[in-house]
Simulated assay, not measured.
Amino acid sequence: MNYTLNSLFGVQGDVIVVCGGTRGIGREIANALADLGARLAIVATRQEACEQAAEELKARGAADAIGCAADVTDFAAVQGAFARIYEKYQRIDGLVNCAGINHVAPLLEIDMENFNHVVDVNFTGIVHCCKAAGQYMLPAHKGRIVNVSSLSALQGKAKYTAYSASKAAINGFTRALSTEWCAQGVNVNVLSPGLVVTDINRATIMANPDGYRRRIEAIPRGVPGRLEWLVSPVVMLLSPGSAHLTGQVICVDGGISTGDTFVMDRKPQDPA
């Protein structure tokens, strides 16, 4: 077999839906896919923001781009958005699920409406988007889905009960769905970022600079993540090169999920 970058990792001309693609991680991924010549559909809550993102992506070099507003917690709305995307392109090759929110509060203080809303957006929204995409991917026997989770799915953090639970649910759902769909040509994987400053956590980080510094010190690479470092794993998971890779959680976190840099600097004293 002769290998080329395009045969391994090419996404040119593919129709890829990015949910949560107007800002943060989703927007950076959409920017990269535009540069690589994909056809993009941006799904987010506000139609104006979706359309603006689509125009900017076409200006970057996307083969085409459209914006379709939908509240991911509303399955009927999500179905409608995917129907419009399919009507335009007659195919859906890839899906990246990036929509997410957080509400930081102790469990005894968080209002259950807020707790449930975090779970609905972060987890149920992904279920809705996967189900809507599957209606078109499964008959075509082709599809690549990347669900964005978080290090918080693997490591607990005080006041993050809703967020951590929603992200852990993504990992379990992805493993189950990948097993269900892989024989029909649809792969489902997870991208799990470590610490990356985005709109979802910027205010919390700015309010606690000492905690931010200590979190960075614990990362084996010694630096926080950057949006652009999340791009290449997603492109790989959307490309032909991921044909036999499904149900996996790909951690892009500077090594923190495998261990931290804490070292005992003194030997324990022998008992007297």
Score class of each variant (00 low, 15 high):
C129M: 09
T246M: 00
Y163S: 02
D35V: 12
G21S: 09
S232L: 13
D111T: 03
I170A: 03
V11N: 04
R213Y: 07
V190G: 01
L5E: 13
S242W: 04
Q90L: 12
A59Q: 14
L195E: 05
K167A: 01
A218W: 08
D120P: 01
A30H: 07
A140E: 11
W229L: 06
R202I: 11
E217D: 15
A153K: 02
Q52I: 08
K267P: 03
A32H: 11
P193Q: 03
A158S: 14
P240F: 14
N171Q: 15
A243P: 00
E87A: 13
N208S: 12
R226V: 10
G21E: 01
A59V: 08
N97R: 05
Y89M: 08
I145Y: 07
P271S: 09
V121K: 02
A158K: 15
I200R: 03
V17N: 01
R39C: 12
S166A: 15
I110R: 02
P268K: 09
Q135K: 13
V223M: 11
A76G: 10
V196Y: 03
Q184L: 09
I42F: 04
R84C: 08
A207L: 13
G13F: 09
R221Q: 15
N102R: 08
Q79P: 01
V18W: 03
N189I: 05
N201I: 01
